[in-house]
Nucleic acid binder design. Structure first.
Lengths: 251, 251
DNA sequence: ACAAAAGTGTTACACGTACACCCATGG
DNA sequence: CCATGGGTGTACGTGTAACACTTTTGT
C-alpha cells in the first residue's frame, strides 16, 4: 500500500485476490554470522556446499525465508539446522541489497549475528553439511558478499561488547576471569591490565564466584565464575564500560 | 545459492536462464522514519495517502525497491521524492518481516532512519503528496507496523545520540547552545545542568563560536555556533558521553 | 529598574589508570 | 624449590556532577 508515484498500484483480480501490480518480487535470504570462542581465539562457523554448482565453496549458513515465518524465526530455524542449538543469542544485523549480490537472481540478504558457546556445539553429522570453525582472522574466500557481512558483524561485536555484557554468550556456563580477559583482548587486539580488568568486571555485580577452580592453565588454578542471571538481564541494555579508553576506539 | 536442505534447488531454464526454484519471491519496501526538530519539539514526517484504498490513512514515506537500485539508493530516492532533500543523514535501521504485516501481500519492510534540518525542508507542492510534520508524542494511527518502526527509531535515536554527535543533523547550520540543550532534553525527557552541558559540548572541540547572536529567545542573545567539520568527521564514530549518567539509561 | 535568558567557576567525589608484589601448586 | 599463572591494593589524575551568581538588554 504505497504511493502511486512510487509505481505501486492496486490490481483487482477475480475471487477478491488483491495484489500490488507493477512491482518486482525478489528472494529474501537470511545469513547467519556465528561467532564462537575456543578459549584462545575467536572463530566463525562456515559451511561448505557439498554439491554442484559452487561445490566446495564456503559460505555463511543461510537459507530463504519460508512463507509462514518471520525473519527471526527463519534465522533460528537455520541456526538450528546447522548447529542443533536453540535459544542462543541471535540478533538482526544488517540487510544487504545490492542488485547483483547474487549473480543468479536478485536476492536480499538479511544478515544475523549470533554468539554461541563453542563447547555446546556438537557437529551435526549430516552428509549434506560440511560445517567448520575457522579463525576469524584466517578463513577462506566466501561466496557473494559474505565477507562483507562478517566484517560488519565483527565491527558490531566490537562496538556492542564495549558497552554491553554480551561476550558471556560465547563462554560456557562456568568460566574464569582470565578466560574472559583473553576474550576481550582478542576482540580488541589489545592487552588490558588484569587488576583493573577484574575489578571492573566484578564491580558490575554480574559475576558469582564458585567454589571450584579451573586448573588446566595453571598450577594454582583460577576460580570459576557464573553469571548472576538477574543482574545480567537487568544490566544487559545499560551502558557499561567494559574496556579502557573507549573514546579512542573508532569503528 | 543456498543449501538444498533449505529447499533451494537450481532450475535450468531454456536460454541459460538460471533461477532458484521452489522459493517464494516477495516484495521489498523501504520505509523512512524522518525526524526533525523545530527548536522546541521533535517531530516526524508522515504522508497521507491521497487515493483509495486506505485514503486518508497516514504512513511513513515508503516505496518498493526497483530492479536496478540497492537499498540505500531506494531510501535516498524515496526521501528525495518526498522532501526534495539530498545528502541528508540516512541510515538503515531494521528490517520488519512478519508474514502478514501487509495484509494484501507479503512484503518485507526495510526501515530507514533519517535526521533532517526541518528548516531546509520545503513542502513539495504536489497533488499526490500530503506530507505533514507531527509531534513525536502525538501522531495519528499509522498503517501496518509503522508505529513499531517509529518506536524502534526513537530508541535508536536515544541510544546513538548518547554516544555520537548525530543530533547536529537536526539543527540548522548555525545554532545556539541553549537550542542544542533543549534538543537533548527533549530526546531524553530530562533536564540537564546548563553549565555542565555547555562545558561538555565545548570540550569536544566540535563547536566554533560565531560573532553574531541569536536574539529571538532572550534580550541578551545567545551566541551562534557552527560545527567544526573536520572534528565532526573525525569524532563521528568515537564514543563520547553526551548525557549525564548514561549507565542508568535503559533502552 | 526589572524580568528573562545567557554565560561562567569551584569544589567534592567517583572513576579510571598505572603500577608491583605475594600466593598456590604441580612438576 | 622453582616456574607459572592467579590474585590482590594503593596512589594519582581525570572527568563528572552539584551548585549560585553576574551579565546583557528589551521593555
Amino acid at each position: 500500500m504505497y504511493h502511486s508515484t512510487l509505481n505501486s498500484q492496486l490490481l483487482l483480480k477475480p475471487h477478491s485476490m488483491i495484489r500490488y501490480s507493477g512491482q518486482t518480487r525478489i528472494l529474501v535470504a537470511v545469513d547467519c554470522v556465528i561467532f564462537g570462542f575456543d578459549g584462545n581465539d575467536l572463530k566463525i562457523l562456515l559451511i561448505q556446499r557439498g554439491f554442484e554448482p559452487e561445490a566446495k565453496k564456503w559460505s555463511l549458513m543461510g537459507g530463504f525465508i519460508q512463507p509462514a515465518e518471520n525473519l527471526d524465526q527463519a534465522a533460528n530455524r537455520i541456526l538450528k539446522q546447522l548447529t542443533g542449538l536453540e535459544g542462543v543469542y541471535l540478533e538482526q544485523l544488517h540487510v544487504f541489497g545490492e542488485p547483483f549480490r547474487d549473480p543468479l537472481e536478485r536476492t536480499i540478504g538479511v544478515a544475523y549475528f549470533s554468539l554461541i558457546d563453542i563447547h555446546k556445539y556438537e557437529k551435526q553429522l549430516n552428509d549434506e553439511y560440511h560445517a567448520e570453525w575457522f579463525l576469524l582472522n584466517d578463513f577462506p574466500k566466501l561466496i557473494f558478499d559474505h565477507e562483507e557481512m562478517i566484517e560488519t558483524a565483527k565491527n558490531h561485536l566490537r562496538y556492542k561488547a564495549a558497552l554491553h555484557p554480551i561476550l558471556f554468550e560465547l563462554l560456557p556456563e562456568k568460566f574464569t576471569i582470565p578466560q574472559l580477559q583473553s576474550l576481550y583482548e582478542g576482540i580488541y587486539g589489545a592487552t588490558f591490565d588484569k587488576r583493573n580488568f577484574s575489578r571492573k568486571l566484578l564491580s558490575t555485580g554480574l559475576l558469582i564466584r564458585q567454589q571450584d577452580k579451573h586448573k588446566e592453565n595453571s598450577k594454582k588454578g583460577a576460580f570459576y565464575y557464573m553469571l548472576n542471571e538477574n543482574q545480567y538481564k537487568e544490566k544487559f541494555q545499560a551502558f557499561l564500560n567494559f574496556i579502557p579508553n573507549p573514546e579512542s576506539l573508532i569503528f
